[in-house]
Design a protein around this nucleic acid. Structure first.
Length: 436
RNA sequence: GGAGGGAUGGCAGAGCGGACGAAUGCACUGGUCUUGAAAACCAGCGUGGUGAAAGCCACCGAGGGUUCGAAUCCCUCUCCCUCCGCCA
């Protein structure tokens, strides 16, 4: 969440920044008004509380000298004030909760550099790459045999069995099989290995507490998007960002330890409630997919470099896989609620003839760290300071899998895979069409 | 799942109804001493809220309760440890 103090001291600035992403001024005004009420109530309550405490001490003193009459009179007075204090406390707490719940759904302030605009049409393509573009090769053209959607290729080569996935878990739960499953596993290994020079590998829990999803901003606002196991009050994680951001929740870190960087591959679960009926075929939009995430806790000064590092690593993987991609600098209206600045990486997938989002690399400023209460003690001394968080996918495999299978398809129906996967596939880089 | 024990400041650990935000030790920071360091000695050393400030308030795993007054008593929950059962 954004800093309540900032809202108080610079309401116009906050309102203007949020207007860039379409948040009405009334939301800020409501917080300011309610916060003023809350503080007034709190002051009344605390004054009563101080009085009760002071009277109680006098009761103790009176009893010590044996003056029972005075003690009893003081106790009576204190009891009265205590009742009033309890009532005031409840009132203050209720309003405090209201302030907090308003604050929790207000999105982050977009970075100044984030492009203007309210819809995805306003996103800015900042870069485009294809194999050979570095040395001046022209834009790639795709042959007819590459214009086959991955669900068809997957079925022909027995790599993907969406029907059986649906039998087991319902539609949009993919089932990879045979070489298709091996390919998926190889991609995860490739990526995890690629980041081990600087990022500690984590294998976090797949389910998480409400608190954990609140820290990243996935709750309370987007509860419809996540799977909930009511009996145990646990949520299925929508991304490894969720557990990783809570790794140091409530802790005070040492500045010397920053940046703290993690990488993790997890299954990611999404209900896709707002997209029902869209992209129902194949792997374009699924309820469960594997993804390798990169994450870092950093200082404000380190944030920019850390953000770019993740972007570069995601790009590096796409290049090594030989997939055409582009980078989008998301406009204010399209940036996720918790982020200040986001770059999306989209891969071109010829069989479906679409750009597929395979990574979202974001800088959250201190928005998530404030929710998660992750701070660091400055090396120079002084009070703890909120960390910044950055994260990004490197990469989301379902769509990469689709793009690889479509891009690599040959005229004879077989699929050729990039050389970089050789060590993970025991050198077998061709998926042949099964006979009969 | 059953029985028992526990959770206090960065760490260790006392306190178990009355000035406790909390003894003590270690760690850390500053100072004295020293050519320098160590040792010794002195001082400081949690977080947050609110307020112009003085101050006031909150926090002893979490939440509720009893009481004039709760770290201390009661209830619920979470987590950790030991033993038993079950289990990949």
């Amino acid at each position: 969440m954004i800093d309540l103090h900032l809202i108080r001291s610079e309401p116009d600035q906050v309102t203007a920044a949020l207007a860039r992403r379409g948040v009405p001024a009334s939301e800020i005004e409501a917080v300011i008004a309610l916060d003023a009420t809350h503080r007034a109530l709190m002051q009344r309550q605390e004054a009563l509380r101080a009085e009760v405490k002071s009277l109680s001490r006098e009761v103790g003193a009176a009893k010590k000298v044996g003056d029972e009459a005075a003690a009893s009179a003081l106790a009576d007075r204190s009891r009265e004030l205590g009742d009033a204090e309890r009532a005031a406390a409840h009132e203050a707490e209720e309003v405090g909760e209201q302030v907090r719940s308003l604050l929790l759904v207000i999105p982050n302030l977009p970075a100044d550099e984030a492009p203007d605009g309210l819809s995805e049409d306003d996103n800015v393509v900042t870069e485009r790459w294809w194999p050979g573009s570095d040395v001046g090769d022209p834009e790639p053209t795709y042959a007819e045999h590459q214009r086959v959607p991955h669900w068809e290729v997957g079925e022909q080569l027995r790599l993907l069995d969406m029907e059986r996935g649906a039998k087991i878990a319902g539609s949009m739960f993919p089932l990879y099989r045979g070489f298709g499953a091996r390919l998926l596993r190889s991609l995860g290994q490739l990526a995890l290995d690629a980041h081990l020079d600087a990022y500690e590998e984590i294998r976090p829990p797949t389910f998480a507490l409400t608190e954990t999803l609140t820290a990243t901003g996935h709750l309370p606002k987007f509860s419809d998007e996540a799977y909930l196991m009511e009996r145990d009050d646990l949520w299925a994680i929508p991304t490894a960002e969720v557990p990783l951001t809570s790794m140091h929740r409530g802790e005070i870190l040492a500045e010397a330890d920053l940046p703290i960087r993690f990488t993790a591959q997890t299954a990611c679960f999404r209900r896709e409630a707002g997209a029902a009926g869209r992209d129902t075929r194949g792997l374009l939009r699924v309820h469960e997919f594997d993804k390798v995430e990169l994450f870092a806790y950093v200082t404000a000064e380190q944030a920019h470099a850390a953000h770019l590092d993740i972007l570069e690593r995601a790009e590096g993987l796409l290049r090594s896989l030989g997939l055409e991609y582009r980078i989008l600098d998301l406009c204010c209206g399209d940036i996720g609620g918790s982020a200040a600045r986001t770059f999306d990486l989209e891969v071109y997938s010829p069989g479906v003839d679409r750009w597929l989002e395979v990574s979202s690399v974001s800088w959250f400023r201190d928005y998530q760290a404030r929710r998660a209460n992750v701070r660091y003690r400055p090396a120079a001394g002084g009070s703890p300071v909120l960390c910044h968080t950055v994260n990004g996918s490197a990469l989301a495999w379902a769509r990469i899998w689709a793009a690889l299978v479509e891009t690599g398809r040959q005229a004879d129906g077989s699929v050729h895979l990039p050389e970089v996967l050789a060590p993970y596939l025991k050198g077998q880089l061709v998926i042949e069409v099964p006979v009969a």
